[in-house]
C-alpha cells in the first residue's frame, strides 16, 4: 500500500524555507500545501506563482488552521520556540531550522514538553547529512583511532566585511552571531562525534557587527575527558563557501574531515583500513538522491524528518541534542563576558 502524501506547511519563505519547500514538494512522499511569511512580497510571489499553496501572513495562524500533517519552521530564530510550542499544542510534527533558540532558557518549557510526549520533531543541523561528516563519524565510532587525545576544529566563511543588514545581526532576533548561526553546526558535529561537552572557555569578538560576534575562539572539555579547541568566523578572507575542518588525534592515528574529503592516518591496520593514509574524496563518498535542490544533504535531512513523521517518533536530531548545543553556546558567551573564565555547560 502506498502511504498518502504528507501535507507540509512552511513557516518562513527565506532561503531555507524555499529550499525545504522545493524538496518536500518534489519528494514523492510529501507535498507543500501551505506557507506563511509576513512579507507581502514573498507571499504574493509564491502564492501567485503556484496558485495551489494556501498563503498565510502569520505562521501560528497557519499552524492552527491549515490542514497539515507536518510543519517546517524556517523563521528568524527568536520565533522558533513559540512556533514549536504551537505545533506541540496541536500535536503536529515539526522540523525547526538551527539554531533552536536565541538562548537555552527560552526553550526549557519546550524541551520538558517533548520529554513528556514522544512526538515527531527534528532540528535542522544538516551537516550531519553531508557525506564526508557521516564517514568521519563512522570512523570515529569504529575505534580505529584508539583513545582520542585531542580535537581541533574550524568553521569559516567570507561573508561579512561591513555591517550586516537583516535579522541575523540583531541580537534580539538571532540570539548571537557567527558562533550561534554557523559555529553551532560544528558544535553539533563534535558532540555527535565525541559526546557531550562538560565545560568551556570562550572569547568572542565583534569587528564588523555592532550587536553580535564575528569571531569566536573556544576551548572545550568533553565529558569523556577529551579536550580541544574550536575557531569560528564569517569575516575571514578566501573562503568562497562555508568550510568546516575537524581534526582528531588518537593514540593510533589522525583523522581530518572537511566538507568534501576524509583523510585518515593509521599507525597500524584496522579491519579493512590499511596502515598509513586512507583517503576518501567527494566522488568516492557521493550517494545520489531522489531530488537534489541545493545539495543532497538537505534531501537526506528532509527524508529523515519524513521518516520520523511516519514512525511518529523523534527524528535523528532531537530536542535534547539541540538544547545541548545551545547550552554550549550560552556557556561560551558567559565565559567570554568573564574574560574567558571556565564555564560549566549546564546539564
Amino acid at each position: 500500500m502506498i502511504d498518502p502524501q504528507i501535507r507540509v506547511g512552511i513557516a518562513g519563505l527565506g532561503k531555507m524555507g524555499l529550499v525545504h519547500a522545493g524538496i518536500l514538494n518534489g519528494l514523492r512522499g510529501s507535498r507543500v500545501v501551505a506557507a506563511a511569511d509576513p512579507s507581502k512580497w514573498a507571499r504574493s510571489a509564491l502564492g501567485e506563482l503556484t496558485g495551489s499553496v494556501e498563503m498565510f501572513t502569520d505562521a501560528e495562524d497557519m499552524i492552527r488552521s491549515a490542514e497539515l500533517d507536518a510543519v517546517v519552521i524556517a523563521t528568524p530564530v527568536d520565533q522558533h520556540v513559540p512556533m514549536c510550542m504551537a505545533c506541540v499544542d496541536k500535536r503536529l510534527p515539526f522540523f525547526v531550522e538551527k539554531p533552536l533558540t536565541t538562548d537555552a532558557g527560552q526553550a526549557e518549557g519546550l524541551v520538558q514538553q517533548l520529554r513528556e510526549r514522544r512526538m515527531a520533531h527534528m532540528v535542522g543541523y544538516m551537516t550531519r547529512y553531508v557525506d564526508s561528516f557521516v564517514k568521519g563519524r563512522e570512523l570515529v565510532r569504529s575505534g580505529c583511532l584508539g583513545p582520542i587525545q585531542r580535537v581541533t576544529a574550524t568553521i569559516y566563511v567570507s561573508q561579512l566585511f561591513r555591517r550586516g543588514k537583516g535579522w541575523r545581526y540583531d541580537k534580539t532576533l538571532s540570539g548571537g552571531g557567527v558562533l550561534l548561526s554557523q559555529g553551532s553546526h560544528l558544535l553539533d558535529l563534535l558532540t555527535w562525534y565525541l559526546g557531550p561537552v562538560a565545560r568551556v572557555n570562550g572569547r568572542v569578538q565583534s569587528v564588523y557587527s555592532q550587536e553580535v560576534e564575528d569571531f569566536a575562539h573556544i576551548f572545550l572539555e568533553f565529558s569523556s575527558g577529551v579536550t580541544g579547541w574550536v575557531d569560528s568566523s564569517w569575516s575571514v578572507r578566501f573562503r568562497r563557501m562555508v568550510e568546516i575542518t575537524i581534526e582528531l588525534q588518537g593514540v593510533d592515528g589522525n583523522l581530518i574531515v572537511t566538507d568534501d574529503t576524509v583523510r585518515l592516518y593509521l599507525e597500524r591496520g584496522f579491519g579493512e583500513l590499511s596502515p598509513g593514509w586512507n583517503v576518501w574524496n567527494a566522488v568516492d563518498l557521493y550517494r545520489p538522491v531522489e531530488i537534489d535542490i541545493g545539495g543532497p544533504q538537505y534531501t537526506r535531512e528532509d527524508a529523515a524528518f519524513l521518516d520520523a513523521v511516519r514512525m511518529e517518533r523523534p527524528g535523528d536530531i532531537d530536542m535534547d541534542q539541540a538544547i545541548h548545543v545551545q547550552r554550549i553556546v550560552d556557556a561560551v558567551y558567559t565565559s567570554s563576558a568573564a574574560n574567558g573564565a571556565p564555564e560549566e555547560v549546564s546539564a
Binding site: 527565506g14 532561503k15 524555499l18 512579507s39 512580497w41 514573498a42 566563511v157 567570507s158 561573508q159 561579512l160 550586516g164 543588514k165 537583516g166 535579522w167 541575523r168 564569517w234 563557501m241
Partner: peptide
C-alpha cells in the same frame, strides 16, 4: 545569493 541572503536577507 546564498551569502547575500545570509548577509541581508533574500528580499533585500
Amino acid at each position: 545569493y546564498v551569502r547575500g541572503s545570509n548577509e541581508k536577507g533574500l528580499a533585500n
